[in-house]
Amino acid sequence: MKKEHSKAKKYGMVIDLDKCTGCGACMVACMAENNVPFKKDESNKLDSITWLRVFKLTNGKSFPDADTCYLPRPCMHCEGEHGHAPCVSVCPATATDYSHETGIVSQIYTRCFGCRYCMAACPYHARYFNWWDPVWPEGMEKLLNPNVSVRMRGVVEKCSFCFHRYQAAKEKAYYEGRQELEEDEYQTACTQACPAGAITFGDLNNPKHAVYELKKDKNAFRLLERLGTNPKVYYISTRKWVRQAGDNYLEGYETEGKVKKHR
């Protein structure tokens, strides 16, 4: 029993794309929860910060075969090989770290000096740079989440799987004399906000957590699996074209054996 307690956690997500309606509630919840700054004009998506971004995918066909899929993309918290995530290994100042305890890729804002090498390394565009200092509308400072530090101009930020919630849950459990967290004690803001219940969050290593079985679904896939990033966000879709959009495939090129499986 004790052995099971000491087993490292690997927090991850399974997102059912067939359930996602693209409403954007997850994005809003994420921004509110994590004090994500915004500009007056957010029309330029290339320099606005969205820790969780919903992409719109289409199958490129015309009516009546046209089909659309919305794909929420948080940070993938890549494990790479043994924690060798694309972004973690390149950060020159050790400002981003892979936790072998939780599987979460952290970002230390006060350590980051803004070289943006991690952004160049991330194929998912999950990392964002603070091009401006955050400016909150009058009175909104009081509504900020006190558990999440706001970030200054010139540093990189990204989805943390609401790590502050993990810390709070751990503190509570410790206070109550427990070592382990129940599944519902630590959930991300986006998971809870999704009205369709498309997002499931939990410990991928824990058989008691829903994600443990979901990730084994025959329709489960991850984004850019072939690159060896070994992400911890899984997607499920019964639609083949959606599953195929998760990676790049070459016709006539034998790739099956080359896909790195890290499950």
């Binding site: 290994s89 390149v90 950060c91 020159p92 100042a93 050790t94 400002a95 350590r111 980051c112 000096f113 803004g114 070289c115 943006r116 090498y117 740079f129 603070n130 200054m152 101009r153 010139g154 540093v155 990189v156």
Partner: peptide, 26 residues
Amino acid sequence: IDIGQPLRGWFIFWHANVHSMLTEVA
């Protein structure tokens, strides 16, 4: 000029991640 927080430029030396190519460059 390129780094977002120029006053923290010395972090690359002080908190060096020896596995990063950029550290070696610096």
